[in-house]
């Protein structure tokens, strides 16, 4: 049984929820069982946002994660909040442009990528979370690059499809980082 449990967290407006949705969609296109659960409520309005994504060979039990095989964080408070939920030998990916510290744990793998800086240099800071997802794909093979691209086509409204080549470029930067 293989089950990947990912928490993506950061500020509202960074594309946290959309990133999770893309990942879940790509997982579904891989033929896996998936769930995507957003935090909802007052924190939606500009505060912290997070989502729980499960990609599994088996039917998904609880969509609520009490632990994570991988954590992607795009701000400091999210690292504080979720660091301890990562399983031993799990993966923490942080946007080092925004997260000042490294994890306190040394039983997990850690990648810090200045994703927001790289994305800004590309001309669109919203690609930051795609870069971080790229790192996740590169490190874990959770979904294929092809299915990620297919998910982009499914999830993005047609009028944004011209952005897909750049999004894939961002993904590849993350994969190779």
């Amino acid at each position: 049984m293989s089950q990947q449990e990912i928490i993506i967290a950061g500020f509202g407006g960074q594309g946290i929820l959309s990133a999770g949705r893309l990942l879940a969609y790509a997982g579904m296109l891989e033929g896996k069982n998936v769930s995507w659960l957003p935090s909802y409520g007052p924190e939606m309005r500009g505060g912290t946002a997070n989502c729980h994504v499960i990609i599994s060979d088996d039917p998904v039990g609880s969509p609520i994660l009490n632990s994570a095989t991988a954590l992607i964080v795009m701000n400091g408070p999210s690292l504080d909040k979720f660091e301890n939920l990562v399983v031993k030998d799990g993966l923490i990916i942080a946007d080092s442009s925004l997260v000042q510290r490294k994890p306190n744990r040394n039983d997990v793998k850690y990648s810090g990528i200045p994703a927001t800086q790289i994305a800004s240099d590309m001309g669109n800071s919203t690609y930051a979370c795609i870069i971080l997802l790229g790192k996740l794909l590169g490190s874990t093979g959770i979904v294929s690059k092809e299915n990620f691209e297919n998910a982009l086509k499914k999830v993005l409204p047609e009028k944004y499809h011209h952005m897909i080549p750049d999004e894939m470029k961002a993904l590849e930067i993350g994969m190779k980082y």
């Binding site: 949705r21 998936v34 769930s35 659960l37 957003p38 998904v60 969509p63």
Partner: peptide, 10 residues
């Protein structure tokens, strides 16, 4: 509940 309403699944 809100989990069912808010979550995405296949």
């Amino acid at each position: 509940d809100g989990i069912l309403g808010q979550m995405m699944e296949t």
